[in-house]
Amino acid sequence: MMPSNPQKLANAWTPPGPALLFCPADRPERYQKALDRADVVILDLEDAVSPENRVAAREALIAHPIDPDRAIVRINPSGTGDYRRDLAAIADTNYRVVMQAKAEDPDSIIATALQTIALIETPLGATRAHEIASAVNCIGLMWGAEDLVAGLGGKSSRFGPDEIRPGEYREVARYVRSLTRIAAAAHDKFAVDSVHIDINDTAGLIAEVRDAVAVGYTATACIHPSQVPYIRDGYRPSEDEIDWARKVVEGSEAHHGSVFSLEGQMIDGPVLRQAEVVLARAVAALDVPVGDNATPDQT
């Protein structure tokens, strides 16, 4: 039987949990420590590694394997020598999922010949998000604010302390965040929310995770292990949410799928689907790896 979406891989990889932790690929002593603390590790061959260290990073990637089901390798942008060398190195490993930095067209995704998460972080990439998401081996999208704003000739993706809504994203970043989520959903691919770079801004991280969950993001990337528990907590439904979702599902069954009222709220098909998502996230949270998140010097 053909898959329901011909542009979607059968049995495509999905993140086994919501917290994706970046780790520099030239620091192999941190690989397993990062994996012990997060759900997925993103072994970074791009921004986290200086150009002069990329040869060593690729050698480390090959020599120090970790669980390929819980690892993503971020590769350099298409059209660069590093892109080709990154893919050649990955061919000598068991890793099967890559994240392509600065994705700008579907052909460069297809050219990886691997399951690929496209990172939407340039103006051109943003304008082509839907095309990129349509690539058959594109399994998900992530977005990034800092490269995006740099490509616009700007200086900051967030409002400063003396501006309106300090610490929050500017509208152009929020637009690309929304665009990425919509493009992913339109092509039945998962979406990963961007990192919260202010490690000490716990309140800001919690707020962004809460919003990411509300609009259907699958996971959130992070740069520090101390952020992992907040991400996991944000994606884990509360007892009140689970109780509400169960009442919705049970009520729908009792009313044979017809519209009904629950505690003053009209329950129809879209609300039922939202309740089913809450219960699915509750089940998924039971399988999230639990590690020691307390060592802040591992990334």
Rank of each mutant, 00 (worst) to 15 (best):
Ala48His: 04
Val49His: 07
Val49Ile: 15
Ser50Lys: 15
Ser50Pro: 09
Pro51Phe: 13
Pro51Thr: 14
Pro51Gln: 14
Glu52Val: 12
Asn53Asp: 15
Val55His: 11
Ala56Tyr: 07
Ala57Tyr: 09
Ala57Asn: 02
Pro65Asp: 11
Asp67Phe: 11
Asp67Glu: 12
Pro68Asn: 02
Ala71Met: 09
Ala71Phe: 04
Val73Cys: 08
Val73Phe: 09
Arg74Val: 08
Arg74His: 05
Arg74Ile: 04
Ile75Asn: 02
Pro77Lys: 12
Pro77Asn: 11
Pro77Tyr: 12
Ser78Arg: 07
Gly79Arg: 04
Thr80Tyr: 06
Thr80His: 07
Gly81Asn: 15
Gly81Leu: 13
Gly81Met: 14
Asp82Pro: 00
Tyr83Arg: 06
Arg84Lys: 14
Arg85Phe: 09
Arg85Cys: 08
Asp86Trp: 02
Leu87Ser: 00
Ala89His: 03
Ala91Arg: 13
Asp92Trp: 09
Asn94Arg: 13
Asn94Leu: 11
Tyr95Thr: 05
Tyr95Gly: 02
Arg96Gln: 07
Arg96Cys: 08
Arg96Ile: 06
Val97Gln: 00
Val98Ala: 07
Gln100Cys: 10
Ala101Leu: 10
Lys102Met: 15
Lys102Tyr: 09
Glu104Trp: 07
Pro106Val: 02
Pro106Glu: 05
Pro106Thr: 07
Ser108Tyr: 00
Ile109Ser: 06
Ile109Lys: 02
Ala111Lys: 09
Ala111Thr: 02
Ala111Arg: 00
Ala111Tyr: 03
Ala113Cys: 12
Ala113Gly: 12
Gln115Leu: 07
Thr116Tyr: 03
Thr116Lys: 09
Ile117Trp: 00
Ile117Met: 08
Ile117Lys: 04
Ala118Pro: 03
Leu119Met: 15
Leu119Gly: 04
Leu119Tyr: 03
Ile120Cys: 07
Ile120Thr: 02
Glu121His: 07
Glu121Thr: 09
Gly125Met: 01
Thr127Asp: 13
Thr127Lys: 13
